[in-house]
Nucleic acid binder design. Structure first.
Length: 274
DNA sequence: AGCGTCACCCGGACGC
DNA sequence: TGCGTCCGGGTGACGC
């Protein structure tokens, strides 16, 4: 599931055109899809009209969204579970699971592969319509320890679901939340307002370290979606059930928190109840 | 406000 | 080999 590091890696690839052609500066000639429900808003008819002939100015990332500012309006894509976005040169063979295609003015195609069809595409005049409720970017300078502290204390919630809540903090998903909590040595069920300052500092550092490490490895290639990254080979706890903890040797355990598979070290992340 | 549940999807894992 | 069933997971809607 593409999270911040995976989406960031995709944005970087589309931007630089490494191994393909850079996307910025290209115009969209037309949009074809075998899965019209990919387009969330506006209606598919209006969507086609809005993007036809538009020039893609740049490729940005906000939370797990890919953001494409156009000469008029903004195109946004959320990959959700199984989505991937890549460029293909003129005359390329069809790819498995590609349901939506942006045909570009240089003959290349921006292809949206999405095996489980959870992905969503938006066009809007004002990106805040889509991005407005998102929490802070964890890697921004504005996201300080003090900001995290204030936000944690403002809620009385289990830590893991809180960190997954995109309006609390933007960009973390199941993998990086588990990795960050493990690095911080904090139990996923801890109440957010029970954390003491040393723990908050560890959590802040761990969130950033986990995401930066993910980005450094170009994200993780999982769920059979190869993304070029290899962070899946460096997970400390995620999907490591039964393997020894790298710190203490205890078996990593899997449990369920808020309906989500959750991996942790029962020894290092011991401080259970608030 | 916080939490649980369900729906949306379908490839892959697993059981028979 | 093949068929049926279940699982997982980002997000949003809904109910308590």
């Amino acid at each position: 599931m593409p999270e911040l590091p995976e989406v960031d890696t995709i944005a970087r690839a589309l931007r630089s055109g490494k191994g393909s052609a850079p996307l910025p500066g290209r115009r969209i000639l037309r949009f074809t899809t075998t899965w019209p429900r990919h387009v969330d808003r506006p209606s598919i008819t209006t969507f086609r009209r809005r993007i036809k002939g538009r020039e893609i100015q740049s490729v940005e990332r906000r939370a797990k969204y890919l953001v494409f500012p156009l000469d008029i309006g903004t195109l946004l894509i959320h990959l959700r579970m199984s989505g991937d976005l890549f460029m293909r040169p003129p005359g390329s063979d069809a790819d498995d699971y590609v349901h939506s295609i942006f045909h570009l003015d240089n003959g290349w195609e921006l292809r949206f592969s999405d095996a489980r069809k959870f992905g969503r595409i938006y066009w809007t005049q004002d990106p805040e319509d889509v991005l407005g409720d998102l929490g802070p970017e964890p890697l921004d300078d504005a996201f300080t320890i003090e900001v995290l502290k204030q936000k944690l204390l403002a809620h009385r919630r289990q830590l893991k679901p809180l960190l997954l809540d995109q309006s609390f903090l933007a960009g973390m998903g199941n993998i990086y939340v588990d990795e960050a909590l493990y690095r911080a040595r904090i139990h996923p069920l801890r109440q957010s307002d029970s954390l003491k300052m040393p723990e908050i500092k560890r959590l802040w550092e761990s969130i950033r370290t986990s995401l930066i490490e993910g980005i450094r490895h170009n994200g993780a290639s999982i769920d059979w979606v190869y993304r070029g990254g290899d962070y899946q080979n460096h997970f400390l706890v995620y999907k490591q059930e039964g393997n020894p903890c790298g710190t203490c040797g205890t078996s990593i355990q899997r449990t369920v928190v808020g309906q989500r598979g959750t991996y942790y070290c029962p020894d290092c992340q011991r401080e259970n109840k608030p």
